[in-house]
Computed example of a mutant assay.
Amino acid sequence: MTPRSLRAAALSVHLLTATGAVFAMLAMLAAVQEQWQTMFLWLVVAFVVDGIDGPLARKTDVGRNAPEFDGVLMDLIIDYLTYVFIPAYALFSTDLLPGWTGWVAILVITYASVVYFADTRMKTEDKSFSGFPGCWNMVVIVFFALTPPPMVILPVVVVLAVLMFLPVKFVHPVRTKRWRLVTLPAAGLWVLSATIAAVTGFSLSGWAEWALIATSVWLLCAGALQQVIPGRRAP
């Protein structure tokens, strides 16, 4: 590719990343109107964009070919909106956590997450995350689909917030190479089952419910399992 075409490709990746802000606004507008299905569908779209823009950014080398825009900063801003801020608002605005429990959850989620997102140590050498990566969008849609009681939801929120700052690894479905042949399809199945949950009004049953549970557990626990199970050493 010519330098001009490389620059055009890199700029197009930045523009793709920026669409996440639009999807975040559409999700927030739906949340304010308590249209939870629509909100989560927009969050799923933003999640998919976030999954594909990274590999495209590395392929087009945006840092070299379009350096005037900071793609990492753009991504972090959008991630905080779609992964943290909007899901926390949704959890607070429903009956899943009534009264003071909702206040505790929304304050813990937003405060802990902004500190974590600013932590320069959040990535490990194998491109995983050190600590829970603040994927509250994934957690909250599971809460909506399974509707556990507040005595389950609030402790889960607190434990995950604490795990943000502990040396527990969480895999990146795309960038963590170890077990990627399992983790990447699991992430795709999670997106499918989460989309079905949103479309059906969070009335999952059968394989879709079990798929959402199983893939959520795997994505949460795979990194910690990698820390316990030693990997194969390179020759």
Rank of each mutant, 00 (worst) to 15 (best):
T82R: 02
H172L: 04
V13C: 08
F143G: 10
V142A: 15
L26T: 04
F143M: 09
R58Y: 06
P167D: 11
D119V: 09
G54L: 03
P98V: 06
P67C: 03
T17W: 00
Y111W: 13
T19W: 08
L212M: 14
T215I: 01
V44N: 06
V217I: 15
A194M: 05
L166C: 06
H172V: 04
W218K: 04
A224E: 04
L160A: 06
L16F: 08
W100D: 08
V140N: 02
G188V: 06
R121T: 13
V115I: 15
A21H: 06
A88I: 04
E209A: 14
L11N: 10
G206K: 01
D79F: 08
S113F: 10
L219F: 01
P98T: 06
W136P: 07
F202Q: 01
G201A: 00
P155N: 05
R233T: 15
T101C: 03
P148D: 01
V22D: 07
V152H: 04
L192W: 15
L81G: 09
I52F: 05
W190S: 12
F40E: 03
D126M: 02
V162P: 03
R4C: 07
V22T: 12
F144S: 10
I77M: 14
F85H: 11
G20E: 08
D126W: 04
D53W: 00
P155G: 04
L96F: 05
V174K: 08
A145E: 07
F92D: 01
F23L: 15
E34P: 00
I229C: 05
F23Q: 07
A27Y: 05
S12V: 02
Y80F: 14
P155K: 02
F202T: 01
S205H: 11
Y83Q: 12
L43F: 06
R7N: 09
S130N: 14
I78D: 12
S130I: 08
V13P: 12
I77T: 13
T176S: 13
L76E: 09
M28A: 14
P235C: 10
G99Y: 04
G223F: 05
S203P: 01
L189D: 01
L163A: 15
A208K: 06
E209N: 03
F132C: 02
G99C: 00
D75W: 08
L76N: 14
K177S: 14
T215G: 00
A118Q: 13
L73R: 06
T38V: 12
G71I: 01
R175C: 03
M25E: 12
G51D: 06
N137V: 01
G231A: 14
P133N: 04
K123F: 11
L96E: 01
V44A: 13
M28K: 08
S205D: 13
F92T: 01
V140M: 00
L11I: 10
H14A: 00
I86G: 04
R178S: 11
D70S: 13
D70L: 08
D50F: 07
P55F: 01
T195G: 11
V48N: 10
K169C: 06
A90F: 09
P133F: 05
E68T: 00
V44L: 12
F47Q: 14
L76D: 11
Y80R: 02
E209K: 15
G201I: 02
F40C: 08
V114A: 13
V49G: 11
V157D: 03
T183S: 09
A27Q: 09
A161L: 09
A9M: 09
V32E: 05
I213A: 08
